[in-house]
Design a protein around this nucleic acid. Structure first.
Length: 489
RNA sequence: GCUCCCGUAGUCUAGUCCGGUCAAGGAUUCGGGGCCUUCGACCCCGUAACGCGGGUUCGAAUCCCGCCGGGAGCACCA
């Protein structure tokens, strides 16, 4: 689906649309979150509206802890994704805004303070059974609510619950909890508050106070629509319409945010940019262009269907963007030195185009034989046969080589291009060590052509017959290898 | 189990609201061929789909019913 084909937003006015992004700071934004980013951003662009970033950093739970480091990580992710917010809010700054609304809901008889232990509450909900407190009148609830705020109750001893309908066919919707008590230290506001709102209530308020005109969220949050609407109806107000997208899974990316979090924290992963996290940051590290991510995610539209897509689809988008402007270079993994006998002296250097189809990318002089590095894998595959050193000359490989051989002898044949296997090569003279990080977190060492000395960090190159890589660190004056991160074929 | 949502080729998607122009379009993958001194790009060709069963209708991918399959929610998480 082309980008322009997304359906129009209901009742959207040019210049007046306000959208919001609400990530919880428990991990970097990953490829699955990209849908949230680009859908919202695309509509912001289309309607020349505004995009708010609202960190959903209420107190969370034991399993979901707010981590301060992640605020900047997410901000950075948004930046490199090309979807910077127009304004940033922190839920943790807004806690006092929620209390007056809670009072109004209580006064209208829409909520009550429940002192059941969590398990009892859950069991009653499942059974559709009311607990004794449900019969509270508003003055009593108000009194208990003040006690919650005042510190009479400890964590877990009382919650404010919405009064819906215990017979509601959807058990998930029965008398949800609106506020609960926690004395956990919040990384931004410490222990300033002890009564914290849950997501649904905080959004029922902020989708009014912060003024989004449309809420575009994942379908995991559909029940929250009903909650917000229930509260608005009680209050006699109208909120923005909701739109949803289905769950996106990328086949190769086992997106377990909690696992990524553990591995990053333990140092097992190389930070949030480790390719194994599939974070936005790691994708940019691999040379995936924001525009490719945008086209990729928007191609799924606003469908409610859950989908699993192979990463190849993303790579195809990216290839389309970078291929025309990416210089070609030679890289040989697991190199074996090959000395070619009879190699002509006038072929010690050769001028090669930086791109086979784009002359504007220029040329380079490459140092060639008589000594080369070739991939061990190719030597083994074509042992005893004739191969073409790509763009250069034809040689015959020896009939056998020792499995541990580091140097083998080959025989020069001739120059003209022939239809025999074409293998990339690196001239031994001036060759540069290369360290290549792959998406599985493994480092491969190899050798690259001398021109790699000029490669600068962030450059994107194509290693011929290998794939696209992004340069991470230049070749240093000493012996440090050029470091690159593999992107894709 | 309960609630809601979804079901078009290997994958993703257009079409479904307002039934005929859809013997179903596009992208990607895959297969074949061409071209270029890359396993990249480009060009050409090809394989391949309306989950199943009823019903309404002159006519259904589109409307109705049932079933089957998949997903999400059922947290004092977000």
């Amino acid at each position: 689906m082309a980008v322009g084909e997304l359906p129009p937003l209901p009742n959207a006015e040019m210049g007046k649309v306000v959208l919001r992004l609400a990530p919880f700071p428990s991990g970097a934004l990953h490829i699955g979150n990209a849908r949230m980013l680009y859908l919202n951003d695309e509509y912001r662009r289309r309607y020349k509206g505004r995009l708010l970033l609202v960190f959903d950093d209420t107190i969370g739970s034991e399993e979901k802890r707010v981590d301060v480091e992640l605020f900047d990580v997410i901000l950075h992710d948004l930046e490199i994704a090309g979807t910077p917010p127009d304004e940033v809010f922190y839920k943790s700054d807004r806690i006092p805004h929620f209390y007056p609304w809670a009072r109004r809901v209580i006064e209208l008889g829409g909520a009550y303070v429940c002192i059941c232990p969590a398990e009892v509450l859950r069991e009653n909900r499942r059974a559709g059974r009311a607990c004794p407190e449900r019969a509270q009148d508003p003055p009593t609830t108000l009194d208990l609510w003040e006690k919650m705020l005042g510190g009479t109750f400890g964590p877990g001893e009382a919650v404010l619950r919405l009064r819906t309908d215990l017979a509601d066919p959807d058990p998930a919707f029965r008398d949800r909890v609106l506020f609960r008590i926690s004395d956990v230290e919040h990384p931004r506001v410490g222990q300033k508050y002890r009564v914290w709102p849950l997501l649904e209530f905080s959004w029922a308020v902020d989708d009014i106070e912060l003024g989004p005109t449309h809420v575009i969220r994942g379908k995991d949050l559909v029940m929250e629509d009903r909650m917000e609407q229930h509260i608005w109806k009680l209050l006699g107000i109208h909120g923005p319409p909701f739109l949803h997208w289905g769950m996106l899974r990328v086949k190769e990316a086992a997106i377990h945010k909690s696992k990524a979090y553990r591995e990053v924290k333990s140092g097992e992963y190389d930070g949030w940019a480790d390719p194994r996290t599939w974070s936005i940051d790691s994708l940019e590290r691999r040379g995936i262009q924001p525009e490719a991510l945008r086209r990729f995610t928007l191609s799924f539209g606003l469908s409610l269907a859950d989908i699993e897509v192979p990463a190849e689809t993303l790579y195809a988008e990216n290839r389309q963007i970078i291929d025309p402007t990416t210089p070609r270079r030679a890289f040989v993994a697991d190199p074996v030195r090959v000395d070619v006998t009879g190699y002509p002296d006038d072929r010690r250097t050769v001028e090669l185009a930086n791109h086979p189809d784009r002359t504007e990318l220029g040329k380079r002089i490459v140092t060639a034989g008589p000594s080369f590095y070739l991939p061990r894998e190719e030597i083994v595959r074509h042992i005893g046969g004739e191969i073409r050193l790509k763009d250069l000359a034809n040689i015959r490989l020896p009939a056998e080589i020792a499995s541990e051989a580091t140097i083998v002898r080959a025989e020069f044949l001739d120059l003209p291009n022939r239809r025999i296997p074409r293998i990339q090569w690196v001239g031994a003279e001036g060759a540069v060590d290369v360290d290549m990080l792959d998406p599985e977190g493994q480092h491969a060492t190899g050798i690259g052509e001398a021109a790699l000395r000029d490669a600068a960090p962030r450059d994107i190159l194509q290693f011929e017959r290998v794939g696209f890589v992004r340069v991470e660190a230049s070749h240093m004056a000493g012996n440090a290898p050029v470091r690159v991160c593999f992107g894709h074929r």
